[in-house]
Design a protein around this nucleic acid. Structure first.
Lengths: 220, 220
DNA sequence: AATTAAAGTTTGAGTAGTCAAACTTTTTTG
DNA sequence: CAAAAAAGTTTGACTACTCAAACTTTAATT
């Protein structure tokens, strides 16, 4: 079994590879993400490479192997199932569960994970709208687009908030932006890099393009 | 915060001090309990002593300090709340939950512990009848006596099974011996070191004194 | 009391993970 | 393209935890 630290490196690498156009991660971002020095990250990459969890040549990009990818999906599954449990059953604050799940995800046995998943009714997404991989590692991402790409007068439904940052989630929740909520885009102003949206029975809210890029929606 | 390893040492020390008449633990038993060598245990005791969690002189007994005791009770609280959750909510097998809780107990934040405890209705004992310390560290042990001390014809109710061993618990569950179950002691034979008991609507079962010593009962 | 067994300790070594700081390679940019 | 910045690597050292094996002290037995 992968140690807790290894699982965290793999998980971070998965996310970094996702968001990079080349599909490869770099040591500097990885180190920053995990709060360690570059040297530490380099030596860990060497170990992961030896364990065939990543593919990496010196001074070049890092990519997960199939084996590494499997672990990443497994950790994500545990993380998201726990988040769902914490919000739905224990009524923890939507904005807080990420940090809590971060610790618990490493202590969950396959047996408990399955019971928890069953108890929750096999949820397909977590409270932020992030898809939960199934036990075999299949992820079904609902097609969606960032709110930032919407045009004026569009009617959409929020499906996902793509940021685990506590303060951003707090802001989103306070503004009523959570998965399932319907919005109307009232206006878009490219020059001020912002747009105004209104939730079902709420007041109009102005969002920066940056914030709106983290809110994924589907048309309704 | 105490590391996971430290928590395990403290927990084992607590149990050993409890069951020893002198109230002190020894390195050999401690090492055996934790599956490490005596040397490893000795060096850890030195560290715990330095951290003021235990009181220990070379070649003499080990006792927890007030600080150490606090940690032990806290870990036990987490352990037993989780066990209760696993049995009551996730329907895990009574005999299996100890090992599972062993891993989870170290990952539980105070916040989640409290929510879980609240969700379960602030239980006072876990599924084995072990008392759950409250958040302040108070434990209220229901007065009871071992089934082994009962005389023939006594009617009693099981309040606690004092053994976390999987196979013993499996045996106990299969025989219908669980907290809350009423028993009638049918006969006691000191020469064969055994006694025969019968559960409410079950068949008579012969128990060794050793097994009966682990079953705590109260008179009804 | 002398011997043996058990309990406890010390030493030297190893793994996992980390840092600081010096260093090398690659990329960016004036 | 040359200089500077950024990215990546190496080295030496440290903490936490572990073992095996030699050793010392205490307890048990003859």
């Amino acid at each position: 079994m992968a140690t807790e630290t290894v699982e965290n490196y793999i998980k971070a690498l998965y996310a970094l590879c996702r968001e990079s156009p080349s599909g490869e991660a770099g040591v500097a971002r990885l180190a920053q993400e995990l709060g360690v020095t570059k040297g530490t990250a380099t030596s860990m990459i060497k170990r992961l490479s030896l364990a065939r969890l990543v593919k990496a040549e010196p001074y070049s990009g890092i990519a997960l192997t199939a084996k590494g990818n499997k672990i990443a999906l497994d950790v994500m599954r545990r993380h998201r199932v726990i988040e769902t449990f914490l919000v739905r059953i224990l009524k923890l604050d939507w904005a807080d569960v990420h940090e809590e799940a971060e610790r618990l995800e490493h202590a969950l046995s396959p047996r408990i994970l399955d019971r928890l998943d069953h108890f929750l009714g096999r949820p397909s997404t977590d409270p932020h709208g992030d898809p939960i991989p199934d036990a075999a590692g299949n992820v079904s991402e609902a097609r969606s687009k960032p709110l930032a790409k919407c045009r004026a007068r569009e009617r959409v439904r929020i499906v996902r908030i793509k940021d685990q940052n506590r303060s951003f989630l707090k802001f989103a929740a306070d503004s009523g932006f959570m998965p399932g909520v319907n919005l109307v885009v009232q206006s878009v102003s490219p020059q001020s890099a912002s747009l105004v949206v209104r939730a079902a029975r709420g007041k109009p809210v102005t969002l920066s393009q940056i914030a709106a890029a983290k809110i994924l929606v589907k048309m309704i």
